[in-house]
Amino acid sequence: MKRTSAILVGVGGQGAILTAKVLVNGLMRAGYDVKMSEVHGMSQRGGSVSTQVHWGEKVYSPVVGEGAADLMLAFEQMEAVRYARFLKPGGVAVINEYALPSATVAAGLAEYPEGCLEAMRAAFRCYTLDAAKIALELGSPKCMNIVLFGAMTKALGLDEIDWEASIRETVPPKFVELNLAAYHAGRAAAKD
């Protein structure tokens, strides 16, 4: 089986690393060779962050460069645009409709770009959803990442993998039920 690459992008503190862990645990259970790459430190402080996950029969590089990712999960719409060059033309993007102004925008030094979702839809096969709203309706903005993960699993098509089991073993016990609800809500909300 050929290697598949996913890139998870967002803003420090949005839960991208936990989401990647849920993904990786499911892939491991299914017997894939898996590699995951993250960057810590300076970029944590409200900056732009990206995590990559790769799987297949045998994976060598834990990172890919431009034009090489099959799938993107974007926790924020401008971040989808920032990392779009990493996606293969015609690749799949799952995008949170949520927009978070950067510090430069908040300070009035730059304008948040218009038309991020439309631009992504024109270039890639996109699933978009308002995961922030769904998470709030479920009772906690903190489960936004697993709402997005649910949508991502629909785009992935790896239906033989028991993602619910992966969520159970990855998230803290007291948040399992909330996150399972988030996963199902995300799957249901993913609009192609």
Partner: peptide, 18 residues
């Protein structure tokens, strides 16, 4: 590498004091 060109650009999101 082949990449898709987008008509919009992201503005910078530097790390900040929390």
């Amino acid at each position: 590498p082949e990449t898709a060109a987008l008509p919009v650009q992201a503005v910078s999101r530097p790390p900040t004091l929390c």
